[in-house]
């Protein structure tokens, strides 16, 4: 592989990284919000969110990507490929994250809540200062796991023409007629991205050890 092939590869890796990164960032926060709304058990909304989560978790990413990209124009919305990809990845990862956050909520100790309310915290202060820091740490392994699933699933956005780290290997081998080197190189880059995540997770787990009661 020559330097222009490497250049293309890095560009593809960058596309994978930023599209996944934005989806992950939105997905983690949206997942938290949806989990909060679900825990509040607001009648109709609760069921609607439940349906969304089941659907989003059951739908293959490729299907979701195509669905978003093809239905948006019929509703008069003009989506560029990247945005359609981000929306699809976000819808997918949000659903998984919402379940991770929700189980952390449900397992959180009632005692700590009572101590917080008894001392004069409003439920909001309690959530922000006591609950959120702890459930963030306990949810992190699950969230990071979901992040690496998303990154590994992200080649699905190639079906609508986004040139990501996987798709770019096609382009390179179309010129070089030697598909193996670019695919190996792409695999190494995926591994680098994932191991960065795992390293971040280790860091967080070290902090989490003190939560052991």
């Amino acid at each position: 592989m020559d330097s222009s092939a490497w250049g293309l590869l890095i560009q593809g890796a960058w596309t994978t990284l930023w599209i996944s990164g934005i989806s992950i960032a939105i997905g983690v926060v949206m997942g938290l919000l949806i989990a909060l709304l679900r825990v509040a058990k607001i009648p109709v909304l609760h069921q609607l969110l439940g349906v969304y989560i089941s659907l989003a978790r059951a739908t293959p990413l490729v299907t979701l990507v195509l669905f978003i990209f093809l239905t948006a124009p019929t509703m008069g919305i003009n989506l560029n490929r990247n945005v359609a990809g981000i929306i699809a990845l976000t819808l997918n990862t949000t659903a998984f994250n919402a379940e991770i956050w929700r189980s952390a909520f449900n397992n959180f100790s009632k005692e700590q809540r009572e101590a917080a309310l008894a001392i004069g915290m409003t439920p909001w202060v309690y959530f922000r200062r006591i609950m959120l820091p702890q459930i963030t740490i306990t949810s992190l392994p699950g969230l990071v796991n979901e992040m690496s699933f998303l990154i590994k699933g992200s080649p699905a956005i190639a079906v609508i023409g986004v040139v990501d780290l996987t798709r770019v290997t096609n382009r390179i081998s179309a010129v070089t007629y030697d598909p193996l080197p670019p695919i190996l190189a792409a695999a190494v880059l995926y591994m680098l991205i994932i191991s960065l995540l795992v390293w971040l997770q280790r860091l967080a787990e070290r902090k989490a050890s003190r939560l052991a009661v």
């Binding site: 005692e111 700590q112 101590a115 001392i119 702890q134 003190r210 009661v213």
Partner: peptide, 12 residues
């Protein structure tokens, strides 16, 4: 001020 049987300290 309330003091609980199980202490209920905040572990983080």
């Amino acid at each position: 001020g309330m003091v609980f049987q199980g202490f209920n300290l905040w572990p983080h």
